[in-house]
């Protein structure tokens, strides 16, 4: 059974001025860790809000575990956990009070599903009498995850769970997701960080409300059409300017300490030619190497 099935879902705001979602279709398998990757404003949160029955789409169909988001919202709400991008628990209630409150609204006690959250909760347990508003960012995130899990949902929606969280906590967070997945939970997670895409089983790249590509991270990388090279020189800024003048290049953009380039045609000679051109232009310490594209390279390629 598919955990989520979306068929040409559209949603616009401001009377059609902003197309948040444009005929989005994909599905998430049961027990899958599915990533929705895209920059801010791509439509990730809108999609989450529709799937969690907070928002109605303009057109298209979507089901969660076979339940229609329009008509069976009561059933969906019982079975999904949602962790919004913005921390939205009661800041004036303590960690423990928040947790027992959200357990109680699902008709459960804190202890009923304690095993599921034990690993995560133990990390914040020393602060269980502290008010949620007074927790640090990473702790808030963990508490929010606990609250989303406390009723043992079949499907977990995580909207940018790692935004604004430090690198160590991010790593820990993904470890936790893996453990949850191992217990059979389906997880739909969104993130603007391309490096996190590799941690998902399958990903959908989304931009301006449109799905650009859906595949496993490896699959998406394999789809990259041309060989990719990284170029480096002493003066990176003027190097980029020079590269942009080269007509044989299909793409060229700054990427960390290198510039990434790809050629329009697959000619073995042109790498050498480019090296000569750059030397002629007065660039020093030039180094060029063929590289494996990353998800971000794929994203940039797909955007063009």
């Amino acid at each position: 059974m598919e955990a989520v099935s979306i068929n040409s879902l559209s949603k616009s705001f401001n009377k059609g001025a902003i197309q948040a979602l444009d005929a989005v279709s994909f599905s998430v398998q049961e027990g899958e860790l599915f990533g929705l990757i895209g920059p801010d404003g791509a439509g990730k949160t809108t999609l989450f809000r529709i799937l969690t029955t907070l928002l109605l789409p303009d057109s298209g169909e979507a089901t969660v575990y076979g339940w229609d988001i329009r008509t069976d919202y009561q059933k969906i709400r019982r079975e999904v956990g949602y962790m919004p991008g913005k921390f939205s628990l009661y800041q004036d209630l303590t960690v423990e009070e928040n947790l027992s409150f959200f357990a109680s609204v699902f008709g459960q006690k804190l202890t009923d599903n304690y095993a599921l959250i034990q690993d995560i909760y133990e990390q914040i347990a020393p602060f269980k009498d502290r008010r949620a508003g007074k927790l640090s960012g990473g702790m808030k995130q963990k508490l929010a995850l606990c609250c989303a899990l406390i009723h043992r949902p079949k499907l977990l929606f995580l909207d940018e769970p790692t935004t604004g969280v430090d690198a160590v906590s991010r790593k820990e967070f993904w470890e936790m997701l893996k453990k949850l997945k191992a217990q059979g939970m389906s997880i739909l997670v969104s993130t603007p960080y391309m490096d996190e895409a590799n941690l998902c089983e399958r990903i959908a790249l989304i931009q301006n409300g449109k799905i650009l590509s859906i595949d496993s991270p490896q699959g998406i990388i394999k789809q990259y059409p041309t060989p990719l090279y990284a170029v480096k020189a002493k003066n990176m800024i003027s190097l980029l300017a020079t590269l942009r003048q080269q007509e044989q290049l299909a793409s060229c953009y700054a990427f960390g300490e290198y510039h990434h380039i790809s050629f329009k045609s697959q000619d073995a000679q042109q790498l050498q030619q480019l090296q000569q051109t750059l030397e002629a232009a007065g660039h020093q310490e030039i180094s060029m190497l063929a590289i494996e594209p990353s998800i971000e390279d794929c994203f940039i390629e797909l955007m063009h």
Partner: peptide, 13 residues
């Protein structure tokens, strides 16, 4: 304002 109403709305309340 705080967004807790969203969190409440996704529960069976």
């Amino acid at each position: 304002e705080i967004g807790t109403i969203e969190q409440i709305n996704v529960t069976p309340i």
